[in-house]
Amino acid sequence: MAAIELINVVKRYGDGEPAVNNVSLDIADGEFMILVGPSGCGKSTLLRMIVGLEDITEGEIRIGGVRVNEMAPRERNLAMVFQNYALYPHLTVFENIAFPLRLAKRPDHEVTERVEHVAEMLELKELLRRKPSQLSGGQRQRVAMGRAIVRDAQAFLFDEPLSNLDAKLRGQMRTEISRLQRRLGTTTVYVTHDQTEAMTLGDRVAVLRKGTLQQCATPRELYENPVNLFVAGFIGAPPMNLLPARVSGGQVELPFCTVPVPQGVDPDEVEGRLLIAGLRPGHFEDAEYVEAGKLELGQTFEATVDVTEWLGNEQFAYVPYESPPEIRAQVEALAQELDMEAAHPQLIISLDPASRIQEGQRARFWVDVRRMHLFDPRTGANLALSSAAVS
């Protein structure tokens, strides 16, 4: 096991544009670090630089305190699990797992002992004589993980290992990977574009955008305190509601109600500004299901519901609203960057599954205004967290 340090790491290709731009990141010994972001953000490139499959243009990478920039991949003692499993079709499960030990010329008795130990850990003992073509997708991925574990590597690197699996199997494999990492305590760097994997697996999550690190924090911190509009829009499912917000007289005028300027934002510095307010669907409720003592902590309002979705354990209501062209254009551009479909402006409200609100109904809702964020449309910065005053 070893800590991994990325110090001002840059990767440029032939066109000169940085695929990874001045990324600095400290990954603690034994930590499970997630690299997440939309397609093309540089997360896989960063992982490949750590393992040595990509050269570093600028900066430095240290593993266990040792500079590895000039080291070949085989000298870094890292184990990588790929998206496509990368198993040898002509070898049995046993020999696929044993392959790194064979390369290291380990004695047969040690190979057998270690492969059987790993196979038992991954519930593969009954499959050791099979070939990869006789395995399911989840079994193949466990074999690939076994080949990585058997090496006693300093760190595990996962490059979108679950993206070829169906949704149910992905959930099962997430649990297995999490349990295994906690058991082994090995430093792990895991690349994914799936925020569910990011939020459920990682000790910390590093969010990348166009090669630049936006925020690195625990999943809860990312969800509750995104540093900018990009992180706010990327983290959360359903996504955060991004609403036009006009500040006037110390109040924030939203499409459906007027609320106080949130704590941490100086009302004088945003007076008269058109901003973007962020409120998650879970910060709303059907007012009929809010306790009396809680009502006064937020704001109630009425709105007409366009569509409802009942999913058994959760329910959502969709309320359309009007948005100024400049705010709508920015939100649509963000949705496009995040590979989401840009729909017409609508408020997403999370309801109690027992709520009986119907489509087309004028209903009374409650919003927890204490949880609202305000973002600068020009810079995207979260004004409550920004150290610089916004004029």
Rank of each mutant, 00 (worst) to 15 (best):
R140V: 00
R378T: 14
M71F: 14
Q361T: 05
E116R: 15
V231M: 12
A144R: 03
A237W: 04
G233D: 04
S163M: 13
E120I: 00
D166M: 08
L383I: 07
E110L: 14
A343P: 00
Q134D: 11
D339G: 00
E285N: 15
R106L: 14
I63D: 03
N241D: 07
S44N: 12
A198F: 00
K43G: 07
G249N: 09
M173Y: 10
T212G: 01
A206W: 09
N382K: 02
Y289N: 06
G272F: 13
A86P: 14
A389Y: 07
Q263Y: 02
A363W: 04
R378N: 12
T192Y: 08
A3Y: 07
M173S: 05
G211T: 08
Y85T: 06
E309W: 07
P244K: 00
F256G: 01
E60F: 07
P161F: 05
I177V: 15
R140A: 01
P226W: 10
A198H: 09
R140P: 00
L162N: 03
N69M: 04
F82D: 07
T212W: 01
T300V: 14
F32V: 09
E126C: 02
H283A: 14
D352Y: 12
R328I: 01
R140M: 04
G272Q: 03
R179I: 06
N96C: 05
R48A: 05
G65I: 06
A119T: 03
E288W: 06
V270L: 05
G233V: 09
N8A: 13
D376L: 06
S178D: 07
R209W: 13
E341F: 03
H90R: 09
N8W: 10
S133A: 13
L169D: 04
V331G: 01
Y289Q: 12
A3S: 15
P260I: 11
N225Q: 06
L295P: 02
L385F: 11
L184F: 02
L91C: 02
Q330R: 15
V367H: 03
V369E: 13
Q141F: 10
G272N: 07
R220V: 05
I235F: 08
E58Q: 14
H344F: 14
R328L: 13
L169M: 15
G138K: 04
V189K: 01
N241A: 05
G40V: 11
V305N: 07
Y289M: 13
H90A: 06
H193K: 03
R179Q: 12
Q361E: 15
T187A: 06
L162M: 09
G185M: 03
